[in-house]
Every structure is written in structure tokens, then in C-alpha cells.
Nucleic acid binder design. Structure first.
Length: 669
RNA sequence: GCCGAAGUGGCGGAAUGGCAGACGCGAAGGUCUCAAAAACCUUUGAGCUUAGCUCGUGUGGGUUCGACUCCCACCUUCGGCACCA
């Protein structure tokens, strides 16, 4: 031993010594190729630098680091990098509340995180570190945006968008949870605004194919549910009686029940609605529409709520049997799904049944239920068709195809696939994000910023006002520019990008950290891609993980990458619980610092690892950590005694061994 | 309502068809000490008529020589989705 100070287990002494040494020697800096070793890319979801690393970060990162070390011991050439997802609202809110510059605030936090990651004892390759708020990084966001724009994968559209009144910005559908903002919990409203979108729905079908990725079934299921594929038929109901040549399109997955349609319901926003309302119903329908607009989304989509509607006075024609069908308006029909119009088949759909009961509409059975079935609810099981013209007698499931064929043949409608997935709304009316590289010119219209003028820099010199409006809209230097096409005065887009854009391709940048002229070099992608093991929380199941898959596929189609899936294998850690409650910064905090001071980070790391299976989470117990500490002390004591034993010389060694062996034997006997 | 995961001592958990409760926490007793802390040793699922025996892995059935483990039904908890036509 160097000195007596190592006689007893002293974590801070050991840990400080080695973390400095690792850093100096760069032993965790991954080389692109090591002879005889297979490359292994182990990636943890990079953090938002929010202030301090709390215990939840430890539970996410320390076991992931242990995994990377394990792979190194197995002989892999491991890359385990770390970076910072440093754009986002907290920095901007800090600026508004405390007058701190967001970039300064962010950099301070990043420094703090770097320091704490080191004291965690992580084996990160810091030579590959990336920071998304760095122009060197976000210029590629802009580069990809332009590529998407040029290839019809990015577009601007006006429409009802999710609006968080607290964060003063629009949100993508995935970022609305139970009608509230996923970040701050404020109830989300609808607001009419022109917004930028990425055409993720073009990839809906491919995103559903998860056969080749080794992910938890749970996450795959959540993505499948989110994409929400429905196969059905869009069918036209004639409106000739009221407007010559017009019709209402409805989407249905139950075309087999087409002969049971006894009413049609339009969503209050349906574009044809206002032109078909009859004089007698004018007042009641208009007041219904106004009312519906006032009710919040959260209320309107609640399943608890009664189904309501009013008659429009108009009728349309069922093309299969030429019956005259009353048209209603009802707010349980969503304008954002399908065609915004539903054919009502009360006998075979529970919602339609309730609606029909309430408004005394005919309930016509067209699929024969079981003998003892009482018609006081919809019959949704299979059966043979009745009252269905030439299709009567067929099994209803088989009839779906027969009827669809008939409809397509007679040009009454078409087979259609509908998805729940919406295009990804990437516009944010915020400052601290990647500026969208678009210029609006009076003559030339929407003009993309030329590639060689990237990056469009986020201005540093900005003022924040308490209204929450983005300072970019008030910054003249940023706002006014010249049109790249005609040279006239023009205005810049002031929206910035959703931060999920940054995290959709960062894994590629880790592979090629120093490339300046291209986002990443193809030989680096071949060396490292796709990620062998990706580790992080399940809360990103339908946001980050879906966007990332979309981005990878889009970049593949634009010839930037040669893979279709970014993450071969995914692991979700569970949740760390304390006193039966989720540990959170606000309500149930647990600061790791005192623990590290008392026991050292190796104890904390080991404790978290031994809590139980990583994917199932675990219960934190203040006393439980003692056991691990005792164990590490014993490991230390044994290693010291071996060291001493080796120092005594061969003859003495033999004697000691014999004595020890006899002692042990006696003990066992 | 739909989809998914999980239910084992006082607690975290182990065992994937073969001695249930590894390992750890906590608790009790002991050693050391003037004393305490630390450390170390022993005990620790429940019950009984206690060298032993019986019961015991959410509940009820089943398969098997043998079930925490496989099958069926149900209950509870957690997570996700939810008027998706």
C-alpha cells in the first residue's frame, strides 16, 4: 500500500483519484476501430440540463454505465457518449422570471451536469460530447429541415392546433396528455394558426413494422396504438336533394352494417354543415355549433359525457338501398379523425345505440345476434347479415370484402386506411430553440434559406417580456432580412423547432462528432450504426422514440443514412419509488449529494443496481444502502489482506495458508 | 371500456418444472468496549403436542411423480390508451 490512508475503505479518496486518472488518460474515448474487437454503441437518452442531477438521473444513467462497462469487459470496443439536450422551455422561463440569459443559464447547468456525471463515475467518452443549443449542432437541424422542405416532408398549414396558454406555444398531438400540456399540465386549448409540420404520416405504415427491432413489447404496443391503423371503407352519401352534386363522405370499419344506417352525424366543424342546415333548424344548429366551440377538448372527448346532437333538417341517401337518412350534428364526432362524419348504425355500435335511444331514431338489426340476445345494447359480435338486400345470409365478416368490392365496382366509395397518427407539428412560438430557416417575401412568397447561409443564428441580444411572446417577433435585426431570391426586404420565420427535432438524430452525431461539412460521415455510420443498446425512460414511447424512427427513415430516403431503425435494442428502466410515491423534484425529493458524501458513488451505484430488475424500478430505502456499504467495506478489507498476504514472502505465505485452512476446517466441523 | 405489466416473510427481492424465501435491509441475542458507534458471530415465513410435524408464493380450479414456475377462470395494484367511427 502507498500509505496507511488506504487501510480503510475511503470512497472519496479512491473515487477522486480514479475519475481524474480516467479523464487524463482518456481511456473511455472510443476509437472508431480496434483490431480484433467488435464495436458496440451503448447510448443513454441524453438529459435536459435542468440544474442538478437528481436521484432519478442516477437511476437512469448509473446502471446504463454499468452495462457499458460490462460490454467492455466482454471484449467489445464500446462507445458510451453523453451530451445535452439543451434547448427548451425551462431556460426561457428562467430568463423571463429572473432575467438570466437562457444561453448563460444553460451553459452553467451543463457545467454542473458535467461535473456531477464525473462524480457519478461514468465511463463517458467526453471527446464526443454534443450540445444541441450549439450552432454547430443546430445548423444541421436547419439543414435537415430544408431537405425535408425540398422533398415535401415539411410543409406549412393553417389549422386548429393544440395551444398551451401557459407555455404560450403550440404542441404536437403526442405532447398533449389527457387534454393537458405534457410539460406543465395546463389544460390545452385549440387555436387557429399557420404551423410547420413534418409529414410523419407518410411513414405510418413503415413505422408500424417493428419486426426487426428488439424493444419491450409494451413500447411497441404503445406505438402501434398511437399510430392507430384502421382498415375500412369511405362511402359517399348523396346530398343532391339539398345541394346538386354534393355528398357526405363517411369512413367506417363496419361496412358490413351499411344496411343498418339510420342516421348520419357530422362534426360541428364539418365544412359542408353550414350549407345544409334548413331554416326551421337554423337557430338550434347554430347555437349547438357555438356551444361546441366553447367546450374544451378535454370535456368534449370525455367518455363519461352524454352524447348530444341536433337535427340539421337535411337528409342524404344511403347508396346501397337508396333510403333517405336524417343528418345530425354531434360533438362526439371528431373533425380530426376519418372524414369528420359518421354513419350511425345503432344496432351494432354502442355509441350510435345511445345516440339513437336518446333521439328516438330507428334501431335496425342487420347482423343476426345470438338467440337469447336482448336488444337493449348494440350487438357487436359476428353473425349472419339480415335485412341487407342481396348480401343477406352472408357472415358479416366475410361480407365486409364482398360489400367493399361492390362499392368500389359501382364507384360509391373506396377502401381506405385511416390512422390516428397526425403529422408532427414542429412549430414552437418560443425563443430558445432552432430557428426555422424560412423567409417570407411579398413577391416570392415562402423562400427557404439557402444551404450556404446556414446556420440562421439565434440572436443573443434579446429582451424577454412577461407577456410570454417570443422575443424573436420583436427583434428587428433577426426579423428583417432580404429575400434570397429577389433581394427585396423580407421577414424571417420567428417560430423555432420542437426540441424533439434535436433528439431525433443526435445518435448519428455521436458517431461523427468532428465532421464539419457534412452532418456525419458515411464511414462512421458504417462503423457504429445502428445503436446496439439504447437505454432510457418509457415516457418517450410515443414522442422521442417515434420521431427518432421517423427521422431515421426520412434520412434514409434522402440518402443520408443506410439504416431504417436507429435503435436495435431498447431498454426502459423502471421508476424509482420512495414511500410508495414517485420521487420528483417538487413533491417527493431525494438529493443524492448527502448519500455520496457519506457512502461514495460506488455504493450508490451498487445500491441502485441491486434494488431489483432495472426495468421494474424499485423502492428507495435510506437504511437499505447500509448493506451495500458494508459489502464494499468487506471487499476492500479482503483486497487489503490479500495485498498484505502477498507481501510477506513465500515461506511465511505457506504457513499462513495452512493455519488459515485448518482454522476454517475446524470451524466448519 | 380496451391494451400491457405485476402480485412470494416485517421490507427490497431470489428461485422459469425438482429442498420456496438466495443476497440484502430491519429486528432480537451475543463478542469487543469504561461506554457508545462501527465491525464481527448467531437467530429470524407461520403454526404445533417442537430431535420432529403441519401449513405456506393474490383467489378458485386443472395438468404433472412433482407447480412460485405450465393451462383455465377470477380478484387486486400499477402503467398506457380511450367517443378513433
Amino acid at each position: 500500500m502507498e500509505s496507511d490512508k488506504f487501510e480503510k475503505y475511503n470512497p472519496s479518496l479512491i473515487e477522486n483519484k480514479w475519475t481524474v486518472k480516467w479523464e487524463e488518460d482518456g481511456i473511455y474515448n472510443a476509437k472508431n476501430n480496434v483490431k480484433g474487437k467488435e464495436n458496440y454503441f451503448a447510448l443513454s437518452m441524453f438529459p435536459y440540463p435542468s440544474g442538478n442531477l437528481h436521484i432519478g438521473h442516477w437511476y437512469a444513467f448509473a446502471p446504463a454505465d454499468a452495462h457499458a462497462r460490462f460490454r467492455r469487459m466482454q471484449g467489445y470496443n464500446v462507445m458510451h457518449p453523453q451530451g445535452f439536450d439543451s434547448f427548451g422551455l425551462p431556460a426561457e422561463n428562467a430568463a423571463i422570471e429572473n432575467g438570466i440569459n437562457p444561453s448563460k443559464w444553460t451553459l452553467e447547468n451543463i457545467n454542473n451536469f458535467r461535473k456531477e456525471f464525473r462524480s457519478m463515475g461514468t465511463s463517458y467518452d467526453w471527446s464526443r460530447e454534443l450540445v444541441t443549443s450549439d450552432p454547430e449542432y443546430y445548423k444541421w437541424n436547419q439543414h435537415f429541415f430544408l431537405e425535408f422542405y425540398n422533398n415535401n416532408l415539411a410543409y406549412r398549414a393553417s389549422g386548429l392546433a393544440n395551444w398551451c396558454p401557459k407555455d404560450q406555444t403550440t404542441l404536437a398531438n403526442e405532447q398533449v396528455k389527457d387534454g393537458s400540456c405534457e410539460r406543465c399540465g395546463t389544460e390545452v386549448l385549440k387555436k387557429e394558426l399557420p404551423q410547420w409540420f413534418f409529414r410523419i404520416t407518410d411513414y405510418a405504415e413503415e413505422l408500424l413494422d417493428m419486426g426487426k427491432i428488439n424493444w419491450p413489447e409494451k413500447i411497441k404496443m404503445m406505438q402501434r396504438n398511437w399510430i392507430g391503423k384502421s382498415i375500412g371503407v369511405t362511402i359517399k352519401f348523396d346530398l343532391d336533394e339539398f345541394i346538386e352534386g354534393e355528398f357526405i363522405e363517411t369512413f367506417t370499419t363496419r361496412i358490413d352494417t351499411i344496411f343498418g344506417v339510420t342516421f348520419i352525424v357530422l362534426s360541428p366543424e364539418h365544412k359542408i354543415l353550414k350549407s345544409i342546415i334548413q331554416d326551421e333548424q337554423r337557430d338550434s344548429v347554430y347555437s349547438y355549433i357555438e356551444n361546441a366551440a366553447r367546450i374544451s377538448e378535454i370535456e368534449r372527448t370525455s367518455t363519461e359525457r352524454d352524447k348530444t346532437g341536433v337535427f340539421t333538417g337535411a337528409y342524404c341517401i344511403n347508396p346501397l338501398n337508396n333510403e333517405r337518412i336524417p343528418i345530425y350534428v354531434g360533438d362526439y364526432v371528431l373533425s380530426s379523425y376519418g372524414t369528420g362524419a359518421v354513419m350511425g348504425v345503432p344496432a351494432h355500435d354502442q355509441r350510435d345505440y345511445i345516440f339513437a335511444e336518446k333521439y328516438n331514431l330507428e334501431i335496425r338489426v342487420v347482423v343476426k345476434p345470438e338467440e337469447n340476445f336482448n336488444i337493449n345494447e348494440a350487438w357487436v359480435e359476428e353473425g349472419n347479415l339480415i335485412n341487407s338486400g342481396e348480401f343477406s345470409g352472408l357472415n358479416n365478416n366475410l361480407a365486409k370484402d364482398t360489400i367493399a368490392d361492390f362499392i368500389e365496382e359501382k364507384k360509391l366509395g373506396t377502401r381506405t386506411i385511416t390512422y390516428h397518427l397526425r403529422d408532427w407539428l414542429i412549430s414552437r412560438q418560443r425563443y430558445w430553440g432552432t430557428p426555422i430557416p424560412i423567409i417570407y417575401c411579398e413577391q416570392c412568397g415562402t423562400v427557404p434559406v439557402p444551404f450556404d447561409q446556414l446556420p440562421v443564428l439565434l440572436p443573443d441580444n434579446v429582451e424577454f417580456n412577461p407577456t410570454g411572446k417570443s422575443p424573436l417577433t420583436l427583434n428587428k435585426e433577426f426579423l428583417y432580412t432580404t429575400c434570397p431570391k429577389c433581394g427585396d426586404e423580407a421577414k424571417r420565420e420567428t417560430d423555432t423547432m420542437d426540441t424533439f427535432v434535436d433528439s431525433s438524430w443526435y445518435h448519428f452525431k455521436f458517431m461523427s462528432p468532428d465532421s464539419k461539412d457534412v452532418p456525419f460521415r458515411s464511414e462512421d455510420l458504417i462503423n457504429w450504426g445502428p445503436i446496439h443498446q439504447y437505454m432510457g425512460g418509457a415516457e418517450h414511447a410515443v414522442m422521442h422514440l417515434l420521431y427518432s424512427r421517423f427521422f431515421t427513415k426520412a434520412l434514409r430516403d434522402l440518402n443520408y443514412v443506410n439504416i431504417s431503425e436507429p435503435y436495435t435494442k431498447l431498454f426502459n428502466q423502471g421508476m424509482l419509488i420512495k414511500d410508495h410515491k414517485k420521487i420528483s423534484k417538487r413533491s417527493n425529493p431525494l438529493n443524492p449529494d448527502p448519500v455520496i458524501q457519506k457512502y461514495g458513488s460506488d455504493t450508490l451505484r451498487s445500491y441502485l443496481m441491486f434494488l431489483g430488475p432495472w426495468d421494474q424500478g424499485g423502492d428507495w430505502s435510506d437504511s437499505g444502502i447500509n448493506g451495500i456499504y458494508r459489502w464494499l467495506n468487506r471487499v476492500w478489507a479482503i483486497s487489503i489482506s490479500i495485498k498484505k498476504f502477498n507481501d510477506v514472502g513465500d515461506q511465511k505465505k505457506d504457513e499462513t495458508l495452512i493455519v488459515f485452512s485448518h482454522k476454517t476446517t475446524k470451524k466448519i466441523l
